[in-house]
Amino acid sequence: MKGPTRRVQRLQQSMVRMMVDSVFRDAVYRDQVPELSAEDRALLIAPDPRAWSTDRYRRGRLTRALLDEYPVTGAVVGVSRVDAFFGSDAFAAVLASRGSISLAFADWAAPQAGDVALLEGAMCRARRWVPARGKGIQAGPGVVVVDLGAGTLDFLQHGMERLGAQSLDALAQGLRLSRPTVQSAREHVIITCTADGQVGASLVGEAIAALTRRAARPLSTGALLAAARRLGATPSEAAALIQDLLNDGVLAESPPPWPSALDRALA
């Protein structure tokens, strides 16, 4: 089965952008988007320009979806700045690449918010965990490791406390956090997410972080032992460490996908 033609894809992407980004929409009507052919532009400007924005809350819903997953980042950069993502080149790139808005937002926001955006982005990745293809030992279900400036996890936890359980309300009321000071020292944070979306995070040492990162793709036990040896472990220490990580669920052997919502409903 072939998918939509490139032309149809471009038109679909333009429609989405015209609905959420008034600057882009105006540019289309003013013939200031050179990548659009004259024929396609004629199709896009045929509707009354007001018709693109009848849903006044569409962009607000998208912003809210981001703030759900990036509350502390939102508090650092401000809600209006989060909203600005939907007028950015990064958003256009997500549309063109069939990417994830949430994951793309982390990279876009990090220069403004600091590493806390990368930490919340890693939590997004943990929520979207699917097993890697292939047999062998890999990072466990919902496990993601990320390297950040020292103090980032602490900043996130304090930020969450400041925002409280109703973080969206707090953000809507204008609660802001100062951007954390950039630290040259690094910390390794391991994130774990359960099948029902509960996310936890804690600091781990260099060896665990390195082994978990290596296991982003399935590895044989031998390859993992060798990786541990290269980190300085003796053969017995390496075997014990990997066994501990398997016992704790940080690593897993060919884990099955999480049960679907349908599976859970029928259980």
Binding site: T5, Q12, L95, S100, I101
Partner: peptide, 27 residues
């Protein structure tokens, strides 16, 4: 129509009509 833009992802849901041109019918 277009139930979501890009991948099936949280926050990507919308519902847009199809692009009404002949080449959109076949796929």
């Amino acid at each position: 129509g277009l139930w979501h833009f890009g991948a099936r992802e949280r926050g990507h849901m919308l519902l847009l009509p199809p692009v009404l041109i002949p080449e959109a019918v076949g796929p």
